[in-house]
Design a protein around this nucleic acid. Structure first.
Lengths: 132, 132
DNA sequence: GTGAGCGCTAACCATTGGAAAGTACCCACT
DNA sequence: AGTGGGTACTTTCCAATGGTTAGCGCTCAC
């Protein structure tokens, strides 16, 4: 017999990223991590093989890509499908959960690209205000 | 006389966060940075003073909060309003640009809190699959 | 047979981030 | 009169994080 959540055990407050020790904070850090954002956004469009993804995302090292993918897989965002062939072939894709995250970071990435001009203008103003 | 953008100068491709050297990537890193996300999300709800914000966001050091706010101010996301009184009083709020970013990271933070249970379940499965 | 590609892992070092203390000023309390 | 606390930071130092490089075991193309 299973019981409904939070009937057993101590008081489990609802997650709050503003609390220092809340586990939701580390999940948020995984999806907003430097490479996590780009991996989720890329996989939203289609699935990729490891080194294909590495070429798609400029500047990732193999170590960081592997690490990022492992973290995202463990969190249930990414599916890893390793075909036992030679040479090895490993396909990465998003789970349903990962797709929800991917949609949001994808939107954020596109927004950033669109607004880059505004940011650069703001920076010029800021810098000029203190060099004079 | 001013000319329209990209008429003068070399070929300026449209921003792409997947390119190693694209400036949009560093902007994305600023908004998705560990403390940047939490600051933008907090300021979306209301404006805050420095140490009030520090208390609201559990675990930020003063150094990192100051640094994050300076970066976000320079990028044009945050307004800094320092009243010349003693003791010092500095209010931080979002610009229009910052509000657009804030809305997205706020949604991401709330989504993460809601989905925490799913992530924890995925992790248990993942971990169990390799300890056995 | 030599070089490239595959998907990683391990070792090493540079950069980043956090903890703690310093700063300069004022107010409230004892 | 002195002690402690609050304001908004900056500086210093050390630990943790991230990046670079090399290695591995295997296969195919040239």
């Amino acid at each position: 017999m299973s019981v409904s959540p939070q009937v057993v055990g101590g008081p489990v407050r609802r997650p709050d990223v503003n609390e220092k020790l809340c586990p939701s904070r580390v999940v948020l850090e995984h999806v907003t991590s430097r490479w996590g954002v780009l991996v989720l956004a890329a996989l939203l469009e289609r699935s990729y093989r490891f080194s294909e993804l590495r070429r798609a995302i400029g500047g990732v090292s193999e170590k960081m890509l592997a690490q990022t993918l492992q973290t995202l897989e463990r969190d249930g965002f990414v599916n890893r499908d390793a075909k036992p062939v030679i040479p090895p072939r490993v396909d990465y894709s998003l789970t349903n959960l990962g797709r929800e995250a991917g949609e949001q970071v994808w939107a954020l990435a596109r927004w950033t690209e669109r607004r880059l001009g505004d940011v650069e203008r703001a920076r010029s103003e800021y810098d000029e205000a203190r060099t004079s």
